[in-house]
Computed example of a mutant assay.
Amino acid sequence: MKPAAPAVAVATLLLAGAVGCSAGDASPEMEPAAAAVARAAKSSDGITSFRYRITGTVPETGRVHGEAAMNVEPLAMSMRMTAEDRADDGQVEIRLVDGAMYIGGGAEAAKETDGKSWIKFDLSATGADGELNSEQLGGGQAGKNPAAESTFLTGSKDVKKVGSETVEGVRTTHYNGTVTLDALEKSFDKADKATREKRQKSIEQYEKMGVDRLTMDLWVDGDDHTKRFRMRGDADKGPLDMTITFFDVNKPVTVAAPPARDVADLAEMMKDGGA
């Protein structure tokens, strides 16, 4: 059973970016635009929860949009994602709570699971051959903080101020630049091992897509918080163009598991199926 497979794939991609991934403090010798971007990256360390909107285009899947909310510690997340060019199976809801990920496939999914519209993935589960793990179930991506991807612009050598703009009623400063994944990885060298590993994971999905250079736009508010960012790049199977807008930063986020009567447990399904 593959409930809303395109939207699930997009959700997995968009939930990438390591928690606490920042560029550090701005140094005095930085250009003003680069220093402002560095301060915005540093401020991501203090984010404990947020809501966000996703819009754009993803290779193979096409146009997507979604809304989500995340609590960083303890980790909890909910997301509704729609692949607009996949009318038949393009909608999905994902919840990550209490160490498990739930994927809602709606009425169509329920036809294949005895009327249960949700599938539960225990992120610590492994198959008999060890091939089923949290990374393949999406847990490796769903446990990350998407706000951290805005820090990618700190790896740019050509970042510049575009001007002042209002985003969702908030006055912001717009910055733009390009960054290669090679330069981004090199910028991780000064970080400690744990931080370096988190940052490396935050770009792996782009490497797998064949993206080697990103054009980024960043909108920063008066408190040095990222309000919106846009990432564009050429992947092996088409253009990538995603925009994420943030709301309700550091306001409480509560996520509840679906009712047990509506949930099919993947581990039990595999056990019953002998796979």
Rank of each mutant, 00 (worst) to 15 (best):
Ala257Val: 12
Arg171Leu: 13
Asp262Phe: 01
Pro32Asn: 04
Leu214Ser: 08
Glu131Trp: 02
Leu240Lys: 00
Thr243Met: 04
Lys201Ala: 12
Ser43Asn: 13
Gly90His: 04
Ser156Glu: 00
Phe152Arg: 02
Met81Lys: 03
Ile203Gln: 07
Glu135Asp: 14
Gly17Met: 06
Val167Asp: 08
Asp89Gly: 07
Glu204Ala: 14
Thr82Pro: 01
Val159Asp: 03
Ala87Phe: 10
Lys271Thr: 13
Val263His: 02
Ala9Ser: 14
Leu184Gln: 11
Thr172Arg: 07
Asp221Leu: 01
Ala125Lys: 11
Gly127Gln: 10
His225Val: 03
Ile119Thr: 12
Val263Lys: 08
Asn250Val: 01
Val159Leu: 01
Gly24Met: 04
Met77Ile: 12
Thr226Met: 12
Val37Met: 09
Asp217Gln: 12
Gly169Asn: 07
Arg232Asp: 09
Ala41Val: 05
Ala260Leu: 05
Val72Pro: 05
Asp114Pro: 06
Val72Asp: 02
Lys190Arg: 05
Ala68Ser: 12
Val64Trp: 00
Glu112Asn: 15
Ala38Ser: 13
Met270Lys: 10
Ala5Pro: 15
Lys251Cys: 09
Phe229Asp: 00
Asp98Pro: 02
Phe188Leu: 12
Gln141Asp: 08
Ala260Val: 14
Arg230Ile: 10
His65Phe: 03
Leu75Ala: 11
Leu181His: 01
Ala33Cys: 02
Glu31Val: 09
Ala128Gly: 10
Gly99Phe: 07
Ala148Met: 05
Ser44Trp: 06
Gly274Ser: 07
Thr245Tyr: 03
His225Leu: 14
Ser43Ile: 04
Ala110Gly: 06
Asp192Arg: 04
Ala257Gln: 03
Leu240Arg: 04
Ala275Trp: 11
Ile119Ser: 03
His174Lys: 13
Ile203Ser: 10
Ala83Ser: 14
Ala36Met: 03
Leu75Met: 13
Pro74Lys: 00
Thr215Asp: 07
Lys157Pro: 04
Pro74Leu: 10
Met79Thr: 08
Phe152Cys: 03
Ala68Leu: 04
Val97Lys: 05
Phe50Arg: 06
Ala194Asp: 15
Thr173Tyr: 05
Lys157Phe: 00
Gln91Thr: 13
Pro74Glu: 00
Thr113His: 14
Thr180Cys: 02
Leu240Ser: 09
Gly20Tyr: 10
Ala147His: 03
Asp89Val: 09
Met101Asn: 11
Gly127His: 02
His225Gly: 06
Asp212Asn: 15
Glu29Ala: 12
Lys271Cys: 01
Phe229Trp: 07
Ala275Gln: 11
Met79His: 01
Ala23Val: 09
Glu29His: 13
Ala191Asp: 13
Asp189Met: 07
Arg261Glu: 15
Gly130Thr: 12
Asp182Lys: 14
Asp217Ser: 05
Glu165Gly: 02
Ala26Asn: 09
Ala275Phe: 12
Asp88Trp: 00
Pro146Asn: 08
Ala147Pro: 02
Glu204Thr: 11
Lys111Trp: 04
Ile47Asp: 06
